[in-house]
């Protein structure tokens, strides 16, 4: 020990250095949740493995069958599964239910896919896109486009030109030849120090080089996202929930012409199926069965009796 380093020297050094940088609480919480999931999966996998090995001991009779079981190779390290493929359209080289491990890449080629992250966030991937799923809250867009419906704030989409951070929202991120572009359908996203809300777009070549513009949160530019949209289970659903789904999937604002119409939508239950209908088409087909009808004009879905 160095005798010269007296208590007052220790005090001076620590004062000189100042406090260590604080860690953002949301970062710590996010990492802790993800690492905890991984740790828990490891613990559970080991428990299962121990159970398998215990079987022949309990049986106490080393039959050939049991020997076969006990001679199984030990389980490989459990991959960290952070997402699952929900829907596939076209010729995407993916299959429904396919698990996606952390850091693995998904390429859609001539098809589209929707992927559900462990936290409930939905990521739809356009054709000819490549996406790397880094963690349950972070994806890297390497080519093409993704449409994100975030289950909570904190999702990040990394692009070669900067990171898009979301604050509870639905948005599309698309890479073009020399820039990235995020269009917000709902909520808020941040790129560098720039924010965009519903109906806004940020185009950027770096977090410091961002151009903001107005865009429509509805219309044909968004249609590809419906191709792999999650199904809406109409059987037994309330009309009001169906209308919310239509609004979410189409980007429309919803207007009820009266409280009576709203109440009717809340009380009425639907039956049947909408198959693969686009949301706006589904609205026009389904609402009349509940004594309601819909008109769509400039991004506003008006519901009348």
């Amino acid at each position: 020990m160095n005798d010269d380093l007296r208590d007052d020297t220790v005090e001076r050094l620590i004062k000189l250095a100042g406090p260590r940088p604080a860690i953002p609480a949301d970062v710590a919480a996010r990492v802790k949740a993800n690492v905890h999931n991984q740790w828990r999966a490891e613990v559970d996998a080991r428990s299962r493995s121990r159970f398998i090995w215990a079987l022949p001991l309990a049986a106490a009779i080393a039959t050939a069958i049991i020997l076969t079981i006990t001679n199984r190779p030990s389980a490989p390290v459990t991959p960290w599964i952070i997402a699952r493929v929900e829907r596939v359209s076209g010729a995407a080289p993916l299959s429904k239910g396919q698990q996606i491990a952390a850091r693995s890449e998904v390429a859609t080629e001539n098809g589209r896919a929707s992927v559900r992250l462990a936290d409930g966030t939905s990521v739809r991937i356009d054709d000819h896109s490549r996406v790397r799923f880094l963690t349950p809250h972070r994806i890297a867009l390497q080519a093409g486009a993704v449409y994100v419906t975030a289950a909570h704030s904190g999702i990040r989409v990394e692009t070669p030109y900067g990171v898009v951070r979301d604050i509870g929202t639905r948005f599309e991120v698309r890479l073009t030849k020399n820039l990235a572009r995020v269009r917000v359908r709902d909520g808020v996203v941040i790129v560098g120090t720039h924010r965009a809300t519903r109906g806004e777009q940020l185009a950027f070549q770096s977090p410091a080089d961002v151009v903001a513009e107005k865009v429509r949160p509805w219309g044909f530019e968004w249609n590809w996202t419906n191709d792999v949209a999650p199904d809406f289970a109409i059987e037994g659903a309330r009309v009001s929930d169906f209308i919310v789904w239509v609004a979410n999937e189409s980007g429309f604002d919803v207007l009820y012409d009266s409280d009576a119409t709203r109440q009717r939508a809340t009380r009425t239950t639907l039956h049947g199926s909408i198959g693969k209908l686009q949301p706006d088409v589904a609205a026009k087909a389904v609402l009349p069965t509940a004594g309601l009808h819909a008109t769509i004009d400039e991004g506003v879905l008006t519901v009348r009796q």
Partner: peptide, 29 residues
């Protein structure tokens, strides 16, 4: 996190990713 931050030129996003990956690898081993 601070260890990583200093070695990643202060990039917080990268530090988060790196530490999460490091801890995830560690708990698997």
């Amino acid at each position: 996190f601070r260890f990583a931050l200093r070695r990643l030129d202060g990039n917080e996003d990268a530090a988060e990713e790196v530490v999460q990956a490091a801890l995830s690898s560690a708990v698997a081993k």
